[in-house]
């Protein structure tokens, strides 16, 4: 079971727990504001963009090439950006803090 914390753009802190699926799916299921996941997780819409706390980057890993190409064209993206549909929930990411981009 991994604990994942979301900080939304309206300054809410939401703590959720999950053990499978993607971070986007978990967020959508719990109506985390700013994570829409329009395309259902196939990396085509960028409506699940989060900024990973720098010290958590090791846990989440870096974005893949397809994901990076997508983020390059997002004006809010930085070195800590990920599309949360591409972060798989497992014990490895327990404790991560994600700031929702939108």
């Amino acid at each position: 079971m991994a604990k994942i914390t979301f900080i939304t753009s309206d300054h809410q802190t939401i703590e959720l727990e999950g053990d499978s699926g993607s971070v986007m799916e978990l967020a959508v299921e719990h109506n985390v504001n700013g994570i829409d996941g329009d395309c259902g997780g196939v990396c085509s819409c960028a409506t699940c963009h989060v900024h990973v706390r720098p010290e958590d980057m090791e846990k989440t890993g870096a974005a893949s090439e397809i994901e990076t190409d997508m983020l390059e064209l997002d004006d809010n993206a930085d070195a800590y950006s990920r599309l949360s549909c591409q972060i798989v929930i497992s014990d490895a990411i327990d404790g991560v803090i994600l700031t929702v981009a939108k």
Binding site: V42, C43, S44, I66, M70, L73
Partner: peptide
């Protein structure tokens, strides 16, 4: 298909409102 960065609904600012 798992990774599918298609542009069938357009892309960026003007992506499809009716998607």
């Amino acid at each position: 298909r798992k990774m599918n960065p298609h542009v069938g609904f357009g892309f960026s600012h003007h992506n499809c409102l009716g998607a």
